[in-house]
Structure formats: structure tokens, C-alpha cells
């Protein structure tokens, strides 16, 4: 599913991964001084629109991911109502003897929306970026040493093997008569018995791959050629201009209405 979206060739998929990653960081820094609910709400709507229309992600799939995280977002509201740094004056109603103030609900809402915004902007990145392209872009544009980039990509390739290995370890446990895990206590005990062999296997594989890479002449130097070059295109320019207009506009609105 993920791979299908990462490759489907919409606008966002073609934007340079480095620029997209940078935009994820900007949004976090931009939101730090914001405590009103309107700015994150507006941003959240813009972000979701971008993901759906420029990333070609189906809305159903997107909301299925976001729903569990709205739990997390909700926690910001109740914590702000119960334990605020200073209680607001506009009391809406009482829960028991505890006043619920409008100001605190709004701040909580703002922080909750902020966390949802971070998650949706990260989804914008993750759902539209191929891992390999990201690594190549970081090596080619961000001066990430190839030793690290290719090392990480090699390890990333182990991921599907882990599932297979997990099955093997479980089967080995069963054949030695450890039985199926029942209940939470058994599950925890089982995960303890699985993690060490899994990691040991991972380390063993990593060593072999590294030796193989070196024996085929990979020396980690910068003077190398690339089979896939990740280019800068006009789309990156458009995306950059869009980001600039978005943040300039938001800052202008905030200066006018909030402060």
C-alpha cells in the first residue's frame, strides 16, 4: 500500500525529498510560538488538501491513519482543562467542583491540532517519498557521507527478512515444545525470547553485507557515480514558492488578527 502511494507519480511524489524533509522541519519550528486554535486548524486543512489532491492519497486511507492519533490529540484538551498553567476567566461549566474555562479548552484544542498537524505533515512526507530516493537525495544534495547512506539502505533491505526470521524463531520455539503464547504475560515472555535471536541474526547479516560491499569495491568515498540521480526540477521551485507564500501569508494573518 505504502509503496503504491510512494510511486504513483503525482506532484508531491516528484518533489525533491530533501526539500520535502526540510518543509517538515519548518512546520515544527513555525508552530512553536502558536497557541491559538485557528492557525493549526487552517494549516491542518491545507495539509490534508495537499496530501489528497497533490499526493493522490485516498481520503479514506488517510483518515484511517489519523483516527488513532486523534486520541493523542484529545489528551491535550483534557490535560489543559485539568492542569492548566493559569486557569482562564471565562468559565463554561463545572465538572464536579472544577471549573472548565474557555481559554484552557482553546489552548488544549490548539495543542491537540498542532500534534495532528505534525503527524499529517509527516504523512505528507512519508506517503509520497520512496526511501531509496530519500537516501540518494541526502547523499547527493546534503553531503551525507555515502558510507552512511548506503549502509542504511543495506540495513533497510533486511526489513522483509526480519518477518521471515521471526516466523522461523517462533517455529523453532514451538518445535522445542514451548507452545503457543496465551495471554499478555506469555506474550511478553515470548517477545523477550524472540528479540535476542532476532537482533543477533540482524548483526550477523549486517557484518556479512558490509564485508560483501567492501569486497566489491565500495570504499565510501565521494568520488563515485550514481545509477539514479535525483534532480532538482521546476516542481521543486513551485513547491518552494508555495511554501514561501503559505508561511508569509500565515504570518501576515497572524500579525493582523492574533497579536
Amino acid at each position: 500500500m505504502l509503496e503504491h502511494y510512494q510511486k504513483n507519480g503525482f506532484f508531491l511524489q516528484e518533489v525533491n525529498p530533501t526539500l520535502k524533509l526540510f518543509s517538515v522541519l519548518i512546520v515544527i519550528f513555525f508552530m512553536v510560538p502558536v497557541f491559538d486554535p485557528w492557525t493549526p486548524l487552517l494549516m491542518l486543512i491545507i495539509t490534508l488538501t495537499l496530501i489528497i489532491f497533490l499526493g493522490g492519497i485516498s481520503p479514506g486511507f488517510l483518515f484511517k491513519i489519523l483516527i488513532p492519533f486523534s486520541f493523542f490529540a484529545f489528551s491535550f484538551i483534557w490535560i489543559n482543562v485539568v492542569f492548566p498553567s493559569d486557569r482562564g476567566d471565562t468559565v463554561l461549566f463545572f465538572i464536579g467542583s472544577m471549573p472548565v474555562a474557555l481559554e484552557n479548552v482553546l489552548t488544549g484544542l490548539s495543542l491537540g491540532l498542532r500534534s495532528l498537524l505534525f503527524i499529517s505533515w509527516s504523512l505528507l512526507f512519508v506517503l509520497t517519498t520512496e526511501p531509496t530516493k530519500l537516501m540518494l537525495s541526502l547523499i547527493q544534495h546534503c553531503k551525507l557521507p555515502p558510507r552512511f547512506g548506503y549502509g542504511m539502505m543495506a540495513a533497510y533491505r533486511f526489513l522483509p527478512l526480519f518477518r521471515q526470521e521471526l516466523e522461523q524463531i517462533r517455529a523453532a520455539h514451538r518445535i522445542r515444545g514451548l507452545g503457543e503464547p496465551r495471554g499478555i504475560k506469555d506474550k511478553i515472555r515470548e517477545s523477550k525470547m524472540v528479540i535476542i535471536p532476532l537482533m543477533a541474526g540482524a548483526i550477523r547479516k549486517a557484518e556479512r553485507v558490509a564485508i560483501a560491499m567492501e569486497s566489491k569495491g565500495f570504499d565510501g568515498s565521494r568520488e563515485r557515480t550514481y545509477y539514479h540521480a535525483v534532480p532538482w526540477t521546476k516542481k521543486d521551485m513551485f513547491f518552494g514558492i508555495f511554501l514561501f507564500i503559505l508561511y508569509a501569508g500565515l504570518t501576515a494573518i497572524r500579525v493582523r488578527f492574533v497579536i
Binding site: A154, A202, A206
Partner: peptide, 19 residues
């Protein structure tokens, strides 16, 4: 400095942790 072997091992440990 880290050599390739160590980098790949760090990465694979981190992959397990990443999941």
C-alpha cells in the same frame, strides 16, 4: 572513525528499534 561494518551493524540494530 566508524567503518562500514560498524555503520551497517548500527543501522541494522536501529532498524529493529525503528520498527
Amino acid at each position: 572513525s566508524l567503518n562500514l561494518r560498524e555503520i551497517v551493524v548500527i543501522s541494522s540494530i536501529s532498524i529493529v528499534f525503528g520498527v
